[in-house]
Nucleic acid binder design. Structure first.
Lengths: 227, 227, 227, 227
DNA sequence: CATGAATGAGACTTCATTCAT
DNA sequence: TATGAATGAAGTCTCATTCAT
């Protein structure tokens, strides 16, 4: 829920969330096996998104995938495991969306903030269902919780560094520390988007939401500029 | 998680969450019955906070309350119901904490914002365990979700009204709509506090957190003033 | 299988096998509960003896007892647990059968040997089914194995002490150590009886078996006397 | 467990347990097929001895053999079948060890008893793991049980004949029947050895064990002679 | 009202066996 | 022959809920 990237980009680092496999019987070898595994993952996503994590039974996933009950266990150990893999895939995509390498060093801070918020809104639009699930599972599953927390912490840290750089250049306020500010702004963007897009809080259009977030963000940091 | 009250107060209205009784099997009449019901509610809070909602069994609550397993059903229909009642009680307290009737019409907007944030931090400190539970249950229980959403919406609406008033007085920016702004600021305060206090994100002291939230809040709205 | 008592008696010590309860939810309190528990124990014995330990399903025991499936788990944690309790009960009875306190100090060693063998044969006659089961389960369940081994070791030790006493009195051979001799003689009696009574090896009558065991036993130890 | 051979030898008869092949799906014809079959048998022995019969899965055997899961069924019908074949192989070896054709007709009975016990101890030392498995499986598998019983009966019968011969020659007691005596003595030797070698009952050295068994045996039969 | 035993639907998981490639 | 994915019967265990006392 709280992946939010703004400002100067980060480059090489990859999100640590994408564990490759750790399935029960190593990786499936045959092409057929890969296909079945994929069928199960796709089915799981459909069922999770439709019924929620807790209401989903292994049997539902197997049925949706069109395989026998036991086949599930050929590829995954548990509901949590398949969920974790699914989330990691989504996180990978989210991350790739946000990384726009070689990105504009010629943008103003305000423009960078706007670009970040715009990307974030887009990503959440795309993956809203899985992100909502992540939020659900994180409240009671420690592993998923750690994954979600790590993502938030990484996002906040990235923003903190941007703020710090702006402070050094004299274009962001220096009366407050960069750490708490980054935390507060990540919360503003991610939680607002969460309620806005996923819970149907109300119906602003995208541009209104992006503009509001960006302007509040910029004013809060006392960035110089246009509006 | 997103109860947040700032600005001019509202007065009479009660939080719509606090259904006074709504017990399933008639309200208990005898004094003894009341005591047993109370024992169960207290036990439920202890067990929920200790084990989480999902891990809690009716049997655990009964045991903690020192009553027979079946007695639970004399007073409550389900785990969700006792949880809802418990949450309503807490919400009632939260609400009462925030309502400081006859409160300062002589405060500046910035001071009102600070007072609101300070109260919010205090309330979250007090009720963190239940608020975290609320967050957990809201992700999969529709009834609890509605309760949580209602609280957020009410908070946001209250803030929106304050902002609107400030806009009319010319002391808050008018280039953005009050509705989205209120939503974003509620998110900032409530979600930041959530991570800060409940998930141990980092360890700012109270005053740093309150000051950061208040200054960002005021700057975002372009309130006039001191700092 | 290897409970075998001969010679001078032991007095106070109790077999350590009879753990009183260790059921899941402590002991059942009501009389009804006791009755149901008893029904389950009796049913388990019937089914175990009829089908063997491995072939027995919890459902079979419940059905035989005439209770619902889940009721089993009110009283026992697992098939192994109910079996262990059953075995302990039998062992308790076996032990009580063998302890004949205040027993004949006026008997000759040979007569004591005979009396021990006769008691042993009688006990095995009575409990043959459970003893066979014990033998079965001991081969793969560590806890039951330990129980069975303990019983054998205690029996052998009791006999060893008798032999040692006889050696000191000069009425048993002294060219061999009492320990190995006791082990060999326990094996002779218990294993012979096992095959004879339980596996239908052949069909000696009781008196032939007892006389053969007793005479071989006495001659092996070079006890003085009659025959 | 109760294979025990003493005294005059029997000559031609083969242990009836050693069915040469009896594979399910035709005997493998190709050399490659023979090798795969052998790999599976060796793997099975390793896994059975390591994990016990019940804990062993077909998949474990295949993995240990380095062949695909399904390949197992090319050669064997079931876990029990491969086990039976394995046991038959061991029994064949045990039998061959004990048959020392043309063996000493110039030995005294006591020496023959000693030689038998010594051979028995040696064989059990060598095959203890498989013999223990045999004991395990015999308690619940009828086919294996029959195999084990047959071995015991054959051993006892061989000894009975020796005793009978000695009785006729006037060098063994005649007040007891040869049948029960043979059974008791087989039990003494085999069961003592079982506990001694396999269950770590105590730690006599080989010579003490052999001497104890032999002396008790000889005295029990009232054989004439040295000690 | 209180008790706590009894219920049974429902979910999870294992693994021997089959079979298309 | 060899492969290993797919199958599904069978068993285990949990726990919310009911109900006779």
């Amino acid at each position: 829920m709280n992946v939010h990237v703004t400002g100067e980009q980060v480059g090489e680092e990859r999100l640590s969330t994408a564990q490759p496999s750790s399935s029960p019987n190593q990786a499936p070898i045959s092409a057929k096996g890969h296909r079945t595994r994929r069928k199960l993952l796709d089915a799981a996503q459909i069922v999770f998104e439709r019924d929620g994590f807790l209401n989903t039974k292994i049997a539902d996933i197997s049925r949706e995938a069109g395989v026998a009950h036991g086949t599930f266990y050929t590829y995954f150990d548990s509901k949590t495991e398949i969920f974790r893999i699914l989330v990691a895939e989504v996180m990978e995509m989210v991350y790739n969306t946000q990384i726009t390498p070689g990105d504009g060093s010629d943008l103003t801070p305000r423009q960078k903030v706007e670009r970040g918020n715009r990307q974030w809104v887009k990503v959440v639009h795309q993956h809203r269902a899985m992100l909502r699930l992540l939020e659900e599972v994180a409240t009671f599953d420690d592993e998923i919780f750690a994954m979600r927390l790590r993502v938030r912490v990484e996002s906040a840290e990235r923003i903190r560094k941007s703020i710090e750089r702006w402070q050094q250049k004299g274009i962001a306020r220096t009366d407050l520390e960069s750490g708490p500010m980054a935390g507060a702004l990540v919360s503003m963007v991610s939680n607002f988007t969460y309620f806005w897009l996923m819970l149907g809080e109300s119906d602003y259009d995208d541009e209104t939401a992006i503009r509001t977030l960006t302007e509040l963000y910029a004013s809060a940091l006392q960035l110089p500029g246009d509006p």
